[in-house]
Design a protein around this nucleic acid. Structure first.
Lengths: 377, 377
DNA sequence: TTGAATTGTGCACACGTTTGCACAATTTGG
DNA sequence: CCAAATTGTGCAAACGTGTGCACAATTCAA
């Protein structure tokens, strides 16, 4: 009945103090065998269990053996195989981080913050690119394969079918500045409503009557959200005809969107004078085109306000008045969310505050419609 | 002799067609059990081996069973556990990517390219931040724990002790635009020599006699390399006194370094007129300070050339003449290097070409020393 | 009709770790 | 001096997958 040798081995009488640690064959192969806990166990004259326990805080291990084991480990350059550990403990230090590339400057800052925040928590992000929706679904599947502790999404939204299959199950998903048709997901957003309100107020307070909102037509949740809140804030004044609002969408993204929007809009004789751009990056494009292509002075001819407060916004070339959202706060919120993910099953719903940063791109509108220079003043 | 039940079980007579697939207990626990190959095996009425083989191309599996297994897998949302697979096959799709944050704009573009290139190869980058040297060593250890296929380093250089312990062993390291005191590592660099030569030529050709090189004093390999080659190229002319070269280091990084350098240098009465900045980002800072703080006109008062060719360099605000290095080519070289990593043991040594991009920041130097305005012209 | 070649599938073990349980050795309390 | 408590360590099983080997079933050749 018993055929293979292995059985015989297993059933053999236990030897004294050595558990089966098959000598790692140092054959002629170029790629040398990895060092395992068995190797250090053999050298230290202990079992693999003991080695394992030496790396845990609360284990009952004598100071003596622990010291010896740690010493030998270091000497051998032994590093725990986290893959094996994860298999055993069913826990993972890996976190999925999916972003739509690093083209958008705010995304870059956000990802940067996330990476260093996660790193401080002892977590390691696998970074995946997801430029389109199907790509995002694929990415989620891939991350599931790595048994990640959590998935942080900073672009796009997972299709609900994928959501049903994976997210529902056991991988918590955190949507950052994203729409949340997936109510199983954790949601963290900056306060787009407050931001849009502040922007509207800033332009109105400066005396602008003809306003415009500029956005990329490929823009996702944030842009649309800001537009809607902007419109909503102005509703009272637009309904009386006191103020006009032009909503401009351009088939480009970021800087180029702003650039094109300026070319298109500022060539109209009676164009708006107060511009709210969905992002700072759009504002940069808008300003460059306004200045260098359309010969406008900012803020004398047109006023501009952005959203994000990128480092570039503070530089003298732009000196852009904008709504600041703090990537550090967003990252912190993600950290908190991940922290309490295994303890509670309730979903996070968090809004991060924003603030108005006044710089030099907003002033009162020109007296006369552009084209006819004013005589007074 | 045989004491535990387990032995009895192992030695028991094999049942008909069902191998031991302990029913995943669907207990009251919130976190539902992961779906494993055993689950789909049971539902498909096959063994786990068969399920495993259904996901491999060349396995001898009947079309019928494969179809059925794949169907059930999909239906169940089964995803291979890559950690377990890696343990078994001793191969990994994970690649370590270590960068010193995403503050430097060229690093961002490079990382972006690397991520999408790796993703196309079916590899997944674990992104680690390594701002300082010890941090880098820690990062390498961490990555070793994850059994990564390779480590790509875009900042700093691993200490040679770590190199000896890990890199030597079996994790191939790729140093990107880095110094290589580690000769076990694979080296990929852009052609700093050619770049510095082109920059020198461009300034000399425009008629400049008083040159300067601007760099951050924290700058690593690339900056130092460019400075040395710049100096070397000019050696003949500086030795005759025909041309002067001032080497400026500032205790800041990137934009701020350039900004400060301009404040310091351009306040001198007889300052240089042709500036080679180690990076475009430094050039931006330099130009902003020169224009807005020192009241200089570019290129009329001072000429500037950068290195990298960032997207921002092409925009009208800067319109910077620069040396272009192509991040895409660097990424491609990394891909090639990784591709042949298991087949050959020889190290990669690759230089990526650069080119001069002429824009609007270089012209002839002003006739008279700045300060005394020229009467003619 | 029989023996050989081919095809499809299961079994058992391996990968490197963690951990409940058992147990020997030591210390403690009475 | 003995029982009980404590301490330190080893054993074996588990995590989920891949794969060499064995073997049954089928096809093919003679």
């Amino acid at each position: 009945m018993i055929t293979t040798q292995a059985y015989a081995h297993v059933c053999a009488k236990p030897k004294k103090h050595v558990d089966k640690t098959p000598m790692t064959k140092s054959g002629p192969g170029i790629k040398t065998q990895n060092i395992t806990s068995a190797d250090v166990a053999r050298l230290a004259g202990v079992s693999r269990s003991t080695v394992s326990r030496c790396f845990k805080k609360d284990s009952r291990i004598s100071d003596n053996t622990r010291k010896r084991v740690l010493e030998i480990s270091d000497q051998l350059g032994y590093q725990v195989n986290k893959l094996a550990r994860s298999m055993s403990t069913k826990e993972s230090d890996l976190v999925g981080l999916v972003s739509s590339g690093l083209h958008d400057p705010f995304a870059v800052i956000l990802v940067d913050q996330l990476i260093s925040t996660l790193q401080k928590m002892g977590l390691h992000p696998i970074l995946l690119d997801a430029s389109n929706e199907t790509q995002l679904d694929i990415s989620i599947k891939k991350l599931a394969q790595y048994q990640v502790k959590s998935i942080v999404i900073t672009s796009g939204s997972p299709s609900s079918s994928i959501g049903a299959k994976f997210i529902n199950r056991d991988i918590p998903v955190i949507l950052l500045n994203r729409a949340g048709q997936l109510d199983q997901a954790n949601l963290i957003n900056c306060d787009n409503q407050k931001g849009a309100m502040l922007a509207a107020q800033a332009l109105i307070d400066a005396g602008h009557k003809k306003l415009a909102f500029i956005n990329s037509s490929f823009s996702t949740f944030s842009g649309v959200s800001r537009r809607d809140f902007f419109e909503q804030t102005l509703a009272l004044k637009t309904s009386t005809g006191d103020v006009t609002l032009e909503k401009i969408n351009v088939d480009e993204t970021g800087y180029e969107a702003g650039f094109k929007a300026a070319l298109k809009t500022l060539s109209q004789p009676d164009h708006p004078t107060g511009f709210f751009c969905a992002t700072d990056n759009i504002a940069f494009g808008f300003m460059d085109a306004a200045r260098y292509e359309m010969g406008k002075k900012i803020p004398d001819d047109v006023s501009v306000i952005g959203f994000d407060d990128l480092p570039l916004s503070a530089r003298p070339t732009y000196d852009l008045t904008t709504i600041k959202q703090c990537p550090n706060d967003l990252a912190k919120a993600v950290a908190e969310c991940i922290d309490k993910i295994d303890s509670t099953s309730e979903r996070t719903r968090k809004i991060i505050p924003v603030s108005l940063i006044k710089r030099k791109t907003i002033t009162a509108p020109p007296q006369e419609p552009s084209g006819k220079p004013s005589l007074k003043d």
